[in-house]
């Protein structure tokens, strides 16, 4: 029963969603059923977000109680969760500091702390990429050499200074790069990847619908 019920639910839900593609979503039973299932997905998803918050709070709280190594950071994590979540879920009708709109605590913390911190973390990539390119990008084989030359040309083309440099040479090199690399080789490869990924996703969906793939239940 513990296996049969989830497999049956997955089968019926999956079949309903597939069939709904061929039916009117407003006037037919299958169409309305698929919309109902999508609404359930949104509601269940909301609870999974809540579950995430509860889980991270519990784990960190337990670590703080046991004074585990680095417990101070976990206190900060808990404080951050409280500071961001509590004022945002309280009604803005009580105070303009609550809610998520302009002038609220959440809005201030988001714009002045979270945004710069996340952007800073991501910006450090520029340093690592420069270092990695210097150390690892070598013309060790003919394939690597083609990749290196292509990457160098595209990097030049994608910035105004590089484009100005390419324009010093005869012929419309930036135009040729756009036509033959981005809209030529790149486009063909991307299409192959997209079609391959779509076929893979379809095969996996079919396996789940037919109950062959059961890893989502924690079973092989």
């Amino acid at each position: 029963m513990r296996t049969t019920a989830p497999v049956a639910i997955a089968f019926l839900s999956g079949i309903a969603m597939v069939l709904a593609f061929f039916f009117n979503e407003e006037t037919t039973f299958v169409g309305r059923l698929s919309n109902e299932l999508l609404n359930w997905l949104i509601i269940i998803g909301g609870f999974t977000l809540l579950l995430g918050v509860v889980s991270i709070t519990r784990v960190n709280l337990a670590a703080v109680k046991r004074r585990k190594e680095g417990w101070g950071y976990k206190v900060l994590t808990l404080l951050a969760i409280l500071a961001m979540s509590l004022p945002s879920v309280l009604s803005s009708s009580w105070s303009s500091l609550f809610g998520r709109s302009d002038g609220s605590i959440y809005d201030w913390l988001f714009i002045n702390l979270q945004m710069p911190m996340m952007a800073t973390m991501f910006a450090t990539l520029a340093f690592y990429i420069a270092s990695a390119a210097y150390r690892a990008f070598r013309a060790r084989s003919s394939e690597a050499t083609i990749l290196l030359i292509t990457a160098t040309l595209v990097m030049l083309w994608r910035v105004p200074m590089g484009e100005a440099f390419l324009n010093l040479f005869p012929g419309d090199i930036p135009g040729l790069l756009n036509t033959y690399i981005m809209n030529g080789a790149n486009l063909a490869v991307q299409r192959g990847i997209i079609i391959g990924a779509a076929l893979g996703a379809s095969a996996m969906s079919l396996r789940i619908i037919l109950g062959i793939e059961r890893t989502y239940m924690g079973k092989g």
Binding site: A130, F137, R138, A139, L148, M155, V159, M161
Partner: peptide, 24 residues
């Protein structure tokens, strides 16, 4: 931002060239 991106791209290209010269 294009000025910044231009210089960083040129720097990375320069480093890649330098790295390959050193390698060979």
């Amino acid at each position: 931002g294009m000025d910044i991106q231009s210089l960083v791209h040129l720097l990375i290209i320069g480093l890649v060239v330098l790295g390959n010269v050193g390698y060979f």
